[in-house]
Amino acid sequence: MKTLGRILIILAVTALVTGALYLIVNAGGTGTASDFTQRGEQFASSSDFEAGARPEFEGGGREPRQLGGGWAFGLLKNMGVISLLVAILVLPKGLAKRKRLAAVKVKADDTV
């Protein structure tokens, strides 16, 4: 029962955020193609969408395409981005901790 209540809370919050985001994006007037065409971007003709095709930007969009590194290039790139972020944030903390421990050790040695 407790878990069910929690699930309902999560779903309610998700629904609220989803509704808010949908309203914000559409109220911003960016939900339609007109905003992009005003900026000079070119898409396929509107007749393509009537036939059920999804909108794509020039240069491929979501269709599978060959990238420089081949299969799993994107996966490795994303892994690299996360590793870099973790290294930037975690390594300085670890070094500072080591320095602090070394300083404490030196103090302890001095007192002996």
Partner: peptide
């Protein structure tokens, strides 16, 4: 209904999620 903005938002939010996930992992 098809919307170009959603396509762009999908890419943008996915890139932001990658950065946020990196920060989440680091924390």
């Amino acid at each position: 209904p098809a919307g170009f903005a959603w396509r762009r938002l999908h890419d943008m939010s996915a890139n932001i999620a990658l950065l946020l996930l990196g920060l989440h992992t680091a924390l």
